[in-house]
């Protein structure tokens, strides 16, 4: 069971998730401190570890629109949040998958802060309201990356297959 800890509207930009003024901070180990920095209350709760891993942020359409900054995905991944939104902007979605941040595309989702959700592969059940919402699969093109646990391990496999072979044949 996962609890909704933040509810947001449509078009939540990467400037809201990770404000541009913190862009000099890049390492995934350091970005979480600025997650939702312009929502000071929520940011404090995250920093004080009052929000358990696996908690849910619910949003409307076009979550993560705007800049390609990967900090917007890595800062949420740092707290192991799950984002359930009606849909996502392209680059944010790819960054999230690449870094292993869990996204759920749920075009009709309705939930309030404090609601308990059960997230299944095909649907989200809002245990508090009793409603059920269909889940759309993530792009097929990204499945292999999800299965490999992110783009870094996936690329590593591919790299070894490409360059490793060359190396072996030389040895």
């Amino acid at each position: 069971m996962a609890r909704v800890v933040l509810k947001l509207g449509d078009d939540i930009s990467t400037d809201i998730i990770y404000p541009g003024r913190f862009m000099a901070t890049v390492l995934p180990s350091e970005t979480p401190q600025y997650a939702f920095a312009d929502y000071p209350e929520f940011n404090e709760k995250l920093k004080n570890r009052e929000i358990p891993p696996g908690s849910v942020v619910v949003a409307g359409k076009n979550f993560g629109c705007g800049s390609s900054r990967e900090q917007a995905a890595s800062c949420l991944k740092g707290y192991d949040l799950i984002v359930v939104a009606r849909n996502f902007a392209r680059i944010f979605m790819q960054n999230a998958i690449n870094l292993g941040l869990r996204l759920v595309v749920c075009p009709q989702i309705e939930a309030e802060e404090g609601d308990e959700l059960e997230i299944r592969p095909d649907k989200v059940i809002n245990k508090t309201s009793g409603q059920e919402f269909t889940v759309e699969p993530l792009p097929a093109a990204r499945q292999a990356i999800i299965e490999a646990g992110g783009l870094i391990p996936y690329t590593r496999q591919r790299l070894l297959a490409m360059r490793g072979k060359k190396k072996k044949s030389r040895a």
């Binding site: 890049v26 390609s68 900054r69 990967e70 680059i91 790819q94 690449n98 783009l151 870094i152 690329t155």
Partner: peptide
């Protein structure tokens, strides 16, 4: 088109 930093590393 735009991509993220990890995708660029790849």
């Amino acid at each position: 088109f735009g991509i993220g930093a990890t995708e660029m590393a790849s």
